[in-house]
Design a protein around this nucleic acid. Structure first.
Length: 583
DNA sequence: GGGTGCTTTTCCTACTTTCG
DNA sequence: CGAAAGTAGGAAAAGCACCC
């Protein structure tokens, strides 16, 4: 009992201290200490959970919260010395005293207990009788507080939602999900929780909504109306407006298969102004005769057919793949597969294909082919059925080809691709494409394995500006640091972060280096980067396509000024580096 | 440390379907 | 019939892992 009194005294002190704190800052302490509460609760839970003998828990409950344990010990229901480890640290009290915290979530088990039975808490006379006039009122007050924070008497719609994480991993699922709501929760006129997200009528697309809005959607509109042409794919593609208005074939009843549409509707009548294999660089004798795209048009925008509110009148036409392009791509894949040492799924030869047909990027070609590949049951379309079996091996050791010049080996196709796809007996590309349309399963049904390095857990959010735009103001600075001063990437990243608050992922730097041609390996690369930089300087040192809405704040302005590399560089590099760079 | 490949996510669009 | 909602596709961005 002496230990109990001592413990309660400590509680009192903490309570008083806490009361003072909560008047000024009620959220922060609760927020920071909440996890500790959960952790301790879980520990206790484990202790009780595997005790195996719940008879000692008497009538109240075997469910466990820290306060309950304290109360139980205090009430003598459970001998204090039976709890391991005794004595309990008095650290829990502040947590218990902060139920008003916004982050506090009542434990479902508590709610169940308290709400289901009015005798869950000892009555005040019982407490007084048990603890006497000295400690009894305090404990009664404590119990009263506990009752007050219990949401059992609160309308369900006003209750805070339970946090799954509060119970996951620490508490047995059964204990956390057994809510038995129908035992006590009174029906509400509208039982929906006020904390739940508002259910709005489904709108078409949130992006479209943003366009309807003012400032936030302004940049979008500007991009679409004004600078859309500057987008890389547009400038590169020079999309044919004629292609954008291709009449649909009336007998096409598979709207979800653009290749089929393209195949039928766009197969002829285009200007042969682009010979995919014109330079015969591939050495492929079966060159595609049909043109790939009409690149004579320089208008990147077409009038929107069904203009909706918030959308500009002009739009960028979809850069559809024509059947000729599909043919070209498949021929290209066949050639790469059979006659080259390129890594089949590697970027180089797809980029080369993109150079031949700039209407689509190399990545786009690869993705396009990937879909064909998937729809074909994980087989290359250009292979006969017999060969296809070799192409979709379960053995990962089987490779598609010899190592590439760069040393990278050709990867085997994904072994988990369906190997029982539809038979693929047609040899011609035309029939090949048509065969794809016969695949019963849509593309989405095809098994697509998660990437090894999938970032599903941390969903990447595209920033307001593409990386190219973000990097552009710092190009010269980065060049100076990375190429001239020869700082390592890591050090340069630190410098950029500390000095310019410019934080980018390491790979983003690498990617940008590749775009800019910044390579440290070899003098030629260095010269190349210098040349590239010089070209930009010829443009006035400004990026020609500064995206509206991309604000870099003061950091961006620094590119216009002389900047003196501060001793920070010396700190980072360990060398004397006071460099003045005229930008 | 630097470079590259592979994959997924996200954005934006066209097209189709549904509904008042 | 028109607008809204739904769906699929093209492309870029981004992260991770691997190799040199």
């Amino acid at each position: 009992m002496a230990a109990l009194r001592e413990e309660l005294e400590v509680y009192k002190l903490i309570d008083e201290m806490d009361a003072e704190e909560t008047t000024n800052n009620a959220i922060s302490p609760a927020f920071t200490q909440e996890p500790e509460l959960g952790r301790e609760a879980g520990t206790d839970e484990d202790e009780n959970e595997y005790d195996g003998d719940t008879s000692n828990l008497n009538t109240i409950d075997e469910n466990e919260s820290d306060d309950d344990d304290i109360l139980y010990q205090s009430s003598g229901v459970i001998p204090a010395n039976s709890m391991a480890p005794p004595p309990r640290p008095p650290l829990y009290k502040p947590c218990q005293q902060k139920p008003q915290s916004k982050f506090h979530t009542p434990k479902p088990v508590q709610s169940q207990r308290l709400s289901s039975s009015g005798a869950a808490y000892p009555s005040e006379p019982d407490i007084l009788a048990q603890f006497g006039q000295e400690l009894g009122p305090r404990i009664a007050e404590y119990v009263s507080r506990q009752k007050s924070v219990d949401e059992g008497s609160i309308d369900p719609k006003w209750r805070t939602p339970a946090l799954p994480a509060a119970t996951a991993g620490k508490r047995p699922i059964l204990k956390s999900i057994i809510l038995q709501p129908d035992t006590e929760r009174s029906p509400s006129p509208n039982g929906n929780s006020l904390w739940a997200t508002e259910k709005k009528p489904r709108r078409r697309r949130h992006q479209a909504d943003k366009k309807d809005e003012g400032p936030s959607g302004e940049s979008e509109t500007v991009v679409r109306d004004g600078t859309a042409i500057s987008r890389e794919r547009i400038t590169r593609s020079r999309v044919s407006t004629e292609a954008a208005h291709q009449p649909k074939s009336p007998h096409i009843d598979a709207p979800q298969n653009p290749p089929q549409q393209d195949l039928v509707s766009e197969g002829a009548g285009q200007n042969p102004d682009d010979e995919p294999f014109g330079d015969n660089e591939t050495g492929n004798s079966t060159s595609v005769e049909e043109p790939v795209a009409n690149t004579s048009h320089n208008s990147g925008l077409v009038k929107r057919k069904n203009r909706r509110p918030g959308l500009s009148e002009m739009c960028v036409p979809r850069n559809k793949y024509t059947d000729a392009e599909d043919k070209q791509m498949l021929e290209w894949a066949k050639w790469v597969y059979n006659d080259t040492e390129y890594g089949f799924w590697g970027e180089p030869h797809w980029e080369l294909l993109s150079k031949k047909n700039p209407r689509h990027s190399g990545t786009a070609f690869r993705q396009r082919y990937r879909k064909f590949y998937d729809r074909n049951g994980g087989r290359h379309p250009f292979l006969e059925s017999g060969m296809a079996d070799q192409d979709a091996p379960n053995d990962l050791s089987v490779k598609l080809g010899p190592p590439t010049d760069s040393g990278s080996t050709v990867r085997a196709p994904r072994s988990d691709q369906a190997t029982e796809g539809p038979p693929f007996n047609q040899h011609t590309i035309f029939k090949t494409i048509m065969t794809f349309q016969d695949v019963s399963k849509p593309l989405g049904v095809q098994p697509i394995p998660p990437a090894k390095g999938s970032s599903v857990a941390g969903t990447p959010k595209l920033k307001d500006c593409p990386a190219r735009k973000r990097f552009e103001p710092f190009k010269k600075i980065i060049h100076e640091l990375y190429m001239v001063e020869r700082y390592s990437l890591e050090k340069m990243m630190i410098i950029m972060e500390l000095r310019y608050a410019f934080i980018e992922h390491r790979n983003q730097y690498k990617r940008q280096f590749k775009i800019w041609g910044f390579k440290k390996h070899g003098l030629a690369s260095h010269v190349e980067s210098e040349t590239l930089l010089g070209l930009d300087q010829a443009d006035g040192g400004e990026s020609e396509d500064t995206m509206p809405g991309c604000s870099f704040g003061e950091s961006a302005e620094m590119r216009h000024n002389d900047w003196l590399v501060t001793p920070l560089l010396s700190v980072v590099s360990g060398q004397s580096a006071t460099v003045r760079v005229q930008l």
